[in-house]
């Protein structure tokens, strides 16, 4: 086949909603875009362990502690699936880590915000995982097979996390006055950054059309954001918490909630590295990696020694 016919074949698979597999021919840009998207998602899982991980030792009950441990462990598992999916595109996990540590690869900006109270564990599960699910459910039908399959597993666990987060919020909201205040405060702080998780407005998202065409993105940023707002308003009513947006109101004509202006200046700055925890999160990851080097070296050296001994024994036999 000529490159031209390779391209035609690829396009026809995309058109017929047949998944692309690692050994299939694919355009370079498709491969690059996927590596960027999947590794960014994997990094988000790994960096995302930190803001919640820092509450494991402080969880207010043994049950909450066990659930939080399990949740953060799930995130590590998601990182693992996603790194593996990206590896099928011809990049190693170590290369991806290097890109994260050098700042070349990004991760979700939401994790550059601090977790200040226990209610943040609720708000992250409810809002951040909720927004992540909105983004990710359509990706279970993404065109790249290993990615879509990883997302199926990720989404199942994420929806469980989201329910847990909501349950933490509900317990606080129905608790004492101070607990309700804690819940509202966390809601206020996480609401706007959660809306930013869907990315810039469609008008400023030049790659969206291509990604939609490739079926590695199935709905636009603004469509997903609107869906998230509509769902969350109803959930906030159940919790009895106030929406942190004075401009929020139901728009009969659109059949959706209108919401206030997002501070894109803040978003751009957090992406650029000026968020409250960017430096801290990245330093923590780098430190874990650097301090783990001797451990990884030892594991490698030991495996080599073992293999050598096995070979010797086989020769002798």
């Amino acid at each position: 086949m000529t490159v031209h016919s390779f391209q035609e074949h690829f396009d026809s698979l995309i058109d017929r909603e047949i998944s692309i597999e690692p050994k299939d021919w694919m355009p370079d840009d498709y491969r690059k875009t996927l590596i960027r998207q999947i590794s960014q998602h994997a990094h988000s899982e790994i960096v995302g362990m930190l803001p919640e991980g820092n509450w494991i030792t402080r969880a207010p009950s043994l049950r909450r502690k066990a659930v939080l441990l399990a949740k953060v462990q799930d995130e590590a598992g998601h990182g693992l699936y996603l790194y593996s999916a990206a590896e099928t595109l011809g990049i190693s996990r170590d290369e991806m880590y290097d890109q994260l540590h050098s700042g070349k690869a990004k991760y979700s900006s939401i994790f550059n915000y601090p977790t200040l109270t226990w209610a943040d564990m609720g708000a992250i599960g409810w809002l951040v995982d909720g927004a992540a699910i909105m983004n990710q459910v359509p990706l279970c039908r993404a065109s790249y097979g290993p990615y879509a399959r990883a997302m199926v597993r990720v989404c199942k666990e994420e929806s469980f996390h989201q329910r847990q987060g909501f349950e933490i919020m509900l317990t606080l909201a129905k608790g004492t006055e101070i607990q309700k205040k804690m819940a509202q405060d966390a809601f206020n702080r996480w609401w706007w950054p959660s809306l930013m998780m869907f990315g810039p407005p469609d008008a400023e998202s030049p790659n969206t059309a291509q990604s939609v065409r490739w079926r590695i993105k199935r709905l636009t940023n603004d469509e997903l954001r609107q869906k998230f707002v509509d769902v969350t308003v109803e959930q906030a009513k159940v919790l009895g918490l106030d929406m942190p947006d004075k401009d929020l109101k139901w728009n009969e004509e659109r059949g959706h909630y209108d919401f206030g202006a997002i501070d894109w200046e803040e978003f751009k700055n957090v992406v650029k590295g000026n968020g409250p925890c960017n430096k801290q999160r990245l330093e923590t990851r780098k430190q874990a990696w650097e301090e783990g080097k001797w451990v990884r070296d030892a594991a490698m050296a030991h495996a080599e020694k073992r293999n050598a001994r096995k070979k010797e024994a086989a020769k002798a036999a």
């Binding site: 790994i46 991980g53 494991i56 043994l62 502690k65 066990a66 441990l69 590590a76 874990a288 080097k293």
Partner: peptide, 27 residues
Amino acid sequence: GEWCGHGPILEHDIALTNTALDHMGRT
């Protein structure tokens, strides 16, 4: 539990957290 998210190898970060969970279950 203090190790969670800081392990030297992702697979063993998961394994150690799993062990922590077993201890918490017994607790």
